[in-house]
Design a protein around this nucleic acid. Structure first.
Lengths: 116, 116
DNA sequence: CAAATATACATAAGATTCTGATGTATATTT
DNA sequence: AAATATACATCAGAATCTTATGTATATTTG
């Protein structure tokens, strides 16, 4: 498990990406998938996830569909056309960010020149 | 420039890393170095930087040394022994996190199996 | 079969961390 | 002379997350 501060700011992008890849998912499923894909190292908490899903819905990036499994409710989320665009943009940004950070923390024989 | 939400949580690690690589730096210098190393894409704001430096000092990870350049003050920061340990730990974590995130957002022909 | 665990949603107080504004002052460039 | 750069600092407010709490059904296990 990572000290969660690193995960901050990536949640929205992760959700949008999962929905783009998998078409339709419900909240609990997302927590389990991220857990599995990260080898237990990233655990999305419900207190962070559900408010973010509601926010994405309010922004018009996702729509919902409620389904009953027996008597238990399940709320599926999927991307709107706008959400698909947002997803792509966010992913482009995250990819670039990861690369920049990778550079930033590596190339360091550089106490005097700065530029690369 | 990245939408800054991604940078959240990485600031402490970046500072500790810069100090480990460069031995001794002052705040303004850090902002310029990160800007240069990231090709202008990451801009550390002063409102985030200075409070974080003060926090690191309070935690015992850095010590300070004030120098006058003409009449203008400059405050150099350097790692304490404890700070060096913290720096290593944080970097290990960040590196692992970047890799995990890289996996999470790539390997996706996986709508049904989850595990990798 | 009762208890524990897993599934599945939701909210909310408080903490952390950042943005953007503001303030002060000196040095350099145009 | 004015604008910009260097260099520190603080603070109100915003965003985002943690931890706890709440509700309810389904499944597994001793």
């Amino acid at each position: 498990m990572y000290s969660s501060e690193l995960i901050k700011g990536t949640l929205k992008t992760i959700i949008l990406h999962l929905l783009k890849e998998n078409g339709k998912m419900y909240g609990y499923e997302m927590t389990q998938m991220v857990k599995a894909l990260s080898q237990e190292k990233i655990q999305i908490t419900e207190g962070a996830l559900y408010p973010m899903l509601h926010a994405l819905e309010a922004l018009g990036d996702v729509t919902t569909e409620t389904v009953y499994i027996g008597k238990r409710v399940r709320k599926y989320y999927s991307l709107t056309p706008q959400g698909k665009t947002t997803s792509s943009e966010k992913m482009k940004e995250l990819t670039a960010f990861l690369e920049t950070m990778g550079n930033l923390i590596k190339k360091q024989n550089n106490a005097h020149g700065y530029a690369t």
